[in-house]
Simulated scan of single mutants.
Amino acid sequence: MAVFTPLSPAEAALVARAHGLGAVSAITPIPAGSVNSNFFLDTDAGRRFMRIYEEQEADGVAYEWALLDHLGEAGLPVPARVAGPAPGAVRVAGKPVALFELVGGEMSCQAGVSKARARALGGFLARCHAAAAGFGWRRRSRFDLGRVAERLAGVPREGELEPVVGRLGAVLAEVREGWPVGLPRGPVHGDLFRDNVHWEGDAIVAAIDWESAADGLFAYDLAVTILAWCFGDAFEWGLAAALVDGYEAIRPLEAREAAELRRMLLAAAARFTVTRITDFHLREGVGERVHKDYRRFLARLEALAAHDAAALAARLGVAVAG
């Protein structure tokens, strides 16, 4: 979440009217995040969350809305969309918009990530994967490895980035060679970071920001979540093992998935290093938002690279056939 496209009072009023919310009394920009422009709107019907989609067109918006409906019907705690016009029918600066009901709970800081929360998160992710497997839509991810490699190719190889680009190119080539075929897949969140999960105690009350959801490997989505939740100044392997344990309590990993976890983790670390370079490091001063340093994910990548597949599996408490 961030602010790239400004929202005028007249535009906010148009959006609110289209959703039957009455007049708008206040607009509050939300600077956190990286991709979309987001606001709180105070209306006659109460406060709502508004998103301007910066990178999605109507088809991508329709996919997200349909997936949220599907997961909500399965009993999973996801945001409820405010009923209104079809995807893309209401726009600001030519871009699709959406309104969502507010969610409760609080986000967790890294220090607040306990083994109990990690286990609960793993179980939640597994339930999402189980439910999403019955979702009929398929959509290519904007962040699959081919597109990540394209992003990296556009990064200038100069200054501090010169060795980083070379390193990332080597890692992407390594993980793409022999990329596994036939692993369980379906719609995945792809971005389940701490700021996208709300808690009450050790219970998840909402998982938000499904805008990047797309078809992908479930093991890769698990890897993204491990990287997002189990690294402070270094990897916290006890948290990672608890997260995987919670996941496997609902959906045990296939032997092939367990064997590929190192590849999945390296691929995810490379992806987020690249996107933090392209979306933040090379765009400093663009939009009102919180900065995210690519070095944080580069550190994860190097820590992972120091382990072979068997050592990583042992850290995660996963059995890998020898």
Results as ranks from 00 to 15, higher is better:
303 A>K: 09
116 A>S: 12
229 W>S: 02
311 A>H: 03
304 L>H: 06
247 Y>H: 01
96 P>H: 11
320 V>Y: 03
278 T>E: 07
12 A>G: 12
30 I>H: 05
63 Y>D: 07
180 P>G: 13
242 A>W: 02
81 R>L: 11
178 G>C: 12
112 G>H: 10
208 I>T: 05
271 R>D: 09
39 F>G: 03
63 Y>L: 07
275 T>E: 11
205 V>P: 04
214 A>C: 07
28 T>V: 15
57 E>A: 08
291 H>W: 14
264 M>Y: 07
105 G>S: 12
113 V>C: 05
62 A>Y: 08
271 R>I: 06
65 W>G: 06
151 R>T: 00
204 I>P: 10
286 V>W: 15
147 R>G: 02
123 G>L: 02
305 A>C: 00
93 A>I: 05
210 W>P: 01
236 E>D: 14
279 D>T: 13
257 E>I: 08
282 L>M: 13
309 A>H: 09
159 G>R: 09
309 A>N: 00
92 V>N: 02
137 W>M: 15
4 F>T: 03
265 L>M: 15
228 A>H: 14
244 V>D: 02
211 E>D: 13
19 H>V: 02
241 A>L: 00
142 R>D: 14
48 R>Y: 02
184 P>Y: 12
315 R>Q: 15
275 T>Q: 10
38 N>E: 01
291 H>P: 13
2 A>H: 06
206 A>W: 03
257 E>P: 05
282 L>Y: 13
317 G>I: 02
302 E>H: 11
85 P>Q: 05
272 F>M: 12
188 V>N: 03
63 Y>W: 11
286 V>T: 14
208 I>Q: 01
303 A>C: 06
103 V>P: 00
172 L>S: 07
231 F>Q: 04
161 L>T: 05
42 D>T: 10
70 H>M: 03
50 M>P: 00
199 W>T: 11
107 M>T: 15
210 W>M: 00
120 A>F: 08
130 A>C: 13
174 E>P: 04
